[in-house]
Amino acid sequence: MKKIFSLAAGTATLLGVVMAGNAMANTTLENIREKGHLQCGVTSGLPGFSQPDDKGNWTGIDVDTCRAVAAAIFGDASKAQFTPLTAKERFTALQSGEIDMLSRNTTWTLTRDASLGLNFAGVNYYDGQGFLVSRELGVSDATELDGATACIQAGTTTELNMADYFRTHGMEFNALVFDTSEQTVQGFAAGRCDVLTSDRSQLAALRSKLTDPNSAVILPTIISKEPLGPVVRQGDDQWFNIVKWTLFTQVNAEELGITSANVDEMKSSDNPSIQRLLGTDGDMGEKLGLSADFGYNIIKEVGNYGEMYNRNVGPGTPLDLERGLNALWTEGGIMYAPPVR
């Protein structure tokens, strides 16, 4: 019996040591530098946000957000590695340390921010839920949708938003729930429902899957706020700041007119804001624990926010989304970053 006790005590001590060792463990930044890459959680395939391309490389705006952070740390955007995660396991993966940051089309809500031990480090895309209806229906506004049947993807907040919206407007709807977005479109194309509802960023992509995309229209109504952004673990403020200011740097760069193409010329600019952002003046990088030219590296490797947007989801891409809310505050949108100073 005594032996068992001493064994248990020994195990407990060992466990305690291991845990204490972890408590004193390195900061996230030190860990990332040590292993030589940034591990980033993304979706397992969402057009424009994160999806593997023909060569098996990840592309998308969420992916570029990670690449920008990798560029800020290492000066090399290719040091970002990606873990595809499902909606259910995304927060666990971050909490357990399997990934360093989550950039997975995740809506910033109070519950998630306050109760999961996580911090949202900004917004890289302002989304909202919208409706796709067939042109024949002749509907021009969502308030005319009383009694409609809606194709919805299971396990998302879309269904809840939809129920909220219809209840507040005193309307009825029938939900037709599908497992994947692919099936939702098929259901819509087959005429099983009058309206398809999803995040507006996805509606355009879904519409392009119809045999005749012109047979359906996206209604202007937006029924929910979906600010999407990168997430980090609570308790490491330095890391939180790095992710946050990487995004701010990209937005500021767009505002100052710095692009990946002209960043080398801009280095010799005498505008003090540009000098501080690119690290030719001041010690902004040092304050974050990064090199002085972290801003230069982000823009050189990934580009400013506008470039990132246009490359992945903007006009001309298959998603073909106007800037809208995601335009700079100076151009009618709400993308606004605190100054680098």
Partner: peptide
């Protein structure tokens, strides 16, 4: 294993058929 985010052959296919550049390749 698809539900835990590992891309087996089915997962790899599913993640790419949503690519809007391709029409209905599901």
């Amino acid at each position: 294993v698809l539900i835990i985010g590992l891309f087996d052959v089915l997962g790899a296919v599913q993640s790419t058929v949503t690519d809007p550049a391709w029409q209905n390749v599901a």
